[in-house]
């Protein structure tokens, strides 16, 4: 019994101290005021002052930072544009990823392990390097513009880097494996005799695809979309390397608020709201996974 207790206690305490407590600190600081001190916020919880200290601490907390977030355009615009960018890039990733997953599922059996490895390999390479690899391609005098100019498709170089287009390309590129793998898993399980039945009953190949394959891959598609949307929403590296000053994403705003403006309370409030926005897709994702598990028995 003692053994079981210790086994539970060690990981429990670790996560409690290094995940839950830090998060509560963020919530607390988001309710504090910015101050010219170290650390730069008040009030501090002064336990030495006893009950009076605790009372002072709570009376010093207010929702001022959250009100501030609603009054300054920058923040709600950043939230909206993060949601928009995450939403559209999820859609683009789906459009690019589905045909690849479908091709993999149709491929001869002996190719599949290799194809799987080719999809997973980029996942093991550094995320930062994969984003960086696009900087040289999309630059004004970069490879893409050189090729397009040389082939005569365009006369003046396209401006792609430091725009939202570059951010979309970056998100689609880096999160593509997350979209392909769940869709491939769903398509691979698909029972081929269902398609045969549809065709025997007079479906054309394309209508069999839309009426049988697509609905049966639904769970994979939904899982893939959440796996792209959730991390894309809080993304920092892609907008700061590929996006420009016009690219507003909340991860970047939080970073700048903290490191450049040193406004800890506002940075914490930004984090709390980002998390509240994320809870909706996370709960929906969990429910989808649960349904899938139940369907599989």
């Amino acid at each position: 019994m003692m053994r079981r207790f210790v086994l539970i206690l060690i990981p429990y305490l670790w996560l409690f101290a290094l995940f839950l407590v830090p998060f509560l600190i963020v919530v607390k600081i988001s309710l504090s005021d910015v101050a010219l001190s170290i650390p730069p916020y008040t009030p501090q919880l002064d336990l030495a002052a006893g009950w009076q200290g605790v009372k002072d601490f709570f009376s010093g907390l207010d929702f001022e930072n959250f009100t501030f977030l609603t009054t300054d355009d920058l923040y709600w615009k950043a939230y909206l544009s993060s949601v928009k960018i995450a939403l559209f890039s999820t859609l683009f990733t789906l459009m690019v990823g589905f045909p690849i997953a479908y091709g993999m599922a149709q491929a001869p059996d002996q190719w599949r392990p290799t194809l799987m490895m080719l999809v997973i390999l980029p996942f093991w390479t550094s995320f930062l390097i994969r984003v960086y690899s696009w900087m040289g391609i999309l630059a004004n005098e970069g490879l893409l513009n050189q090729v397009l100019l040389w082939s005569g498709i365009i006369d003046t170089p396209l401006k792609i880097i430091n725009t939202n287009t570059a951010v979309y390309i970056g998100i689609v590129y880096t999160y593509l494996p997350f979209m392909i793998l769940p869709i491939y898993a769903a398509l691979e399980r698909l029972d081929g005799s269902l398609l045969e039945a549809a065709e025997d009953l007079g479906c054309s190949r394309s209508s069999a695809f839309w009426l049988v394959t697509v609905p049966l891959s639904r769970n994979g598609v939904i899982a893939g979309c959440f796996l792209v949307f959730i991390p894309a929403l809080g993304e920092f590296v892609i907008p700061s390397l590929l996006g420009g000053s016009g690219t507003l994403m909340i991860g970047k705003v939080l970073w700048e608020e903290f490191f450049n403006n040193r406004d800890w309370p506002v940075a914490s409030a930004v984090a709390v709201i980002l998390l509240l926005i994320l809870i909706i897709p996370i709960v929906l994702f969990q429910r989808n996974e649960q349904k899938q598990r139940e369907a599989e028995g």
Partner: peptide
């Protein structure tokens, strides 16, 4: 506490640990 850090944006995890 096991599942939440998997979906937590890095900026929030980083900020909270630093604090």
């Amino acid at each position: 506490m096991i599942y939440a850090p998997l979906v937590m944006p890095d900026v929030i995890t980083g900020l909270s640990l630093l604090l």
